[in-house]
Nucleic acid binder design. Structure first.
Length: 432
DNA sequence: TCTGGGGTCCTAGGACCC
DNA sequence: TCTGGGGTCCTAGGACCC
């Protein structure tokens, strides 16, 4: 048995804790550069604002409907998340933190009335953190997600489901006929693992509700769609196929990418941006005690704007696995210099560290290099410590200068040319 | 004028191996 | 002239998640 605890409109709820005057008003939290809405209060949802709606399209609601828009404060949300997760953990013996606002709780061995217990945890979270949340309980993770959706929808739209299911919905406690009615009333697109594409295909095939999906034959689903959807169907039927993951593996990729506030076309700014991205990514890498062997840099123009489009990326191999901000920043800068083409309005760039290894397995290199590595790693640890105590960016790596290709890059480039460059469109002269 | 920033898993096809 | 049957690894692309 599983529970899913999920903060309602999480970012908005975090903001409301510190600004109670926002209660009852339509509020959205905007992404980086205030580009689009990434969280909406119930009142904002009622205005018809969609997830990801561009700010310029909904801006008029500020005046006409009293919409309040806030710039995202991810440090605050991370902190509130930690508190909520700690309290949610009280529901059962195991916990998987699935995202900033959701965690699955394994309920194995928990005795007594689960629904009551969930209500208690829910009100404790509300009292101690100020975050309202919904709790779904069921035999599988997919059904627990669905139960959570029902708990929230029943609260937000009275009449959509039985009132008793609001806030906490325990599907395992429902009589069969009532469970079927609830599944029948829920659109197939609400199921975890069924995205817009598959939902459309399912509807085409006459599968409109979750109950329809639950009646499908898993083998047929596998043949016609995929093993992934087959697993989803079994989960909806109550057969657990997705385990609780309470000890997540280290990340296989670490990315840091951003849209720019306004288009950038000069090399110096781009180099500075990707150097900074590489440093941020390096911090995350060190936090999981990892080393990168390759780094990917990309940039592209806006697909929404008319005019010449450009999208380029390059994979930069590293001389040896590293988590050193300076090495990674240099590699990112070199990659950018290599792929740069003048005359394009770039709106986004990023750095992705790929092919990650654990620092623990990196033993047995040359003595000299080991010593170098140790010094570098001490320096980076010191930097991370200072930054965590005094705030992000207190200590930073200076932007890498225009001093030509580094030895690392120059050496490797002969043996290994950049691995892929995608959609190189409209480039007057490809640079060698 | 103005459209986020992360991630994961699965599949198909090609290269290569015995 | 005849020309098997697996297996693994890698990559790109698609779909999905929050």
């Amino acid at each position: 048995m599983y529970a899913l605890v999920d903060g309602n409109n999480f970012y908005v709820s975090c903001e409301r804790v510190f600004r109670p005057s926002l209660q009852g008003r339509p509020v959205v939290v905007l992404s980086n550069n205030d580009g689009c809405a990434i969280a909406r209060s119930n009142e904002a949802k009622a205005l018809g604002i969609k997830m990801g709606a561009p700010w310029f399209q909904i801006r008029h609601l500020e005046r006409s409907a009293g919409l309040v828009a806030l710039s995202a404060n991810f440090t605050l949300y991370g902190d509130m998340s930690d508190r909520m997760m700690t309290l949610a953990a009280g529901l059962g013996p195991t916990q998987e933190i699935y995202s900033i606002d959701e965690s699955f709780i394994g309920l194995h061995g928990v005795r007594g009335d689960l629904t009551r217990r969930a209500h208690q945890v829910r009100s404790r979270i509300a009292r101690w953190t100020g975050i309202p949340c919904g709790i779904g309980i069921a035999a599988t993770k997919t059904l627990a997600k669905l139960a959570n959706h029902i708990a929230k929808t029943a609260e937000r739209k009275p009449g959509s489901y039985p009132d008793a299911l609001a806030q906490v919905c325990n599907l395992a406690a429902l009589p069969v006929f009532e469970l079927q009615a609830v599944l029948q009333a829920t659109d197939v697109g609400e199921v975890w693992g069924v995205g817009p594409r598959i939902a459309a295909q399912l509807r085409e095939a006459g599968i409109a509700s979750v109950q329809d999906l639950a009646r499908m034959d898993p083998a047929t689903v596998r043949r016609r769609w995929s093993v992934g959807l087959e697993r989803t169907v079994r989960e909806v039927q109550g057969m657990p196929c997705i385990d609780l993951d309470d000890a997540p593996a280290p990340k296989q990729q670490i990315a840091c990418t951003r849209s720019f506030g306004r288009p950038i076309s000069d090399l110096a700014s781009l180099v500075e941006a990707v150097s900074e991205f590489a440093c941020r990514a390096a911090e995350k890498l060190r936090a999981q005690a990892g080393l990168a062997t390759e780094l990917l840099v990309f940039m592209h123009t806006s697909p929404y704007r008319p005019g010449r489009q450009l999208s380029r990326s390059v994979t930069v191999p590293l001389r040896r696995p590293t988590a050193d901000s300076r090495v990674l920043a240099q590699a990112a800068a070199n990659g950018m210099r290599w792929m740069y083409v003048p005359g394009y309005e770039l709106i986004k760039a990023g750095v992705i560290l790929v092919d990650l290894q654990s620092a623990a397995v990196q033993q047995g290199e040359l003595d000299l290099e080991q010593e170098e590595d140790r010094d570098q790693s001490r320096l980076m640890t010191a930097m991370d410590t200072v930054n965590s105590r005094y705030g992000k960016g207190t200590l930073r790596v200076a932007a890498t200068g225009q001093d030509g290709p580094s030895r690392t890059w120059g050496m490797k480039q002969e043996r290994r040319t950049p691995q892929y460059t995608t959609r190189l469109e409209d480039v007057p002269t490809a640079r060698a």
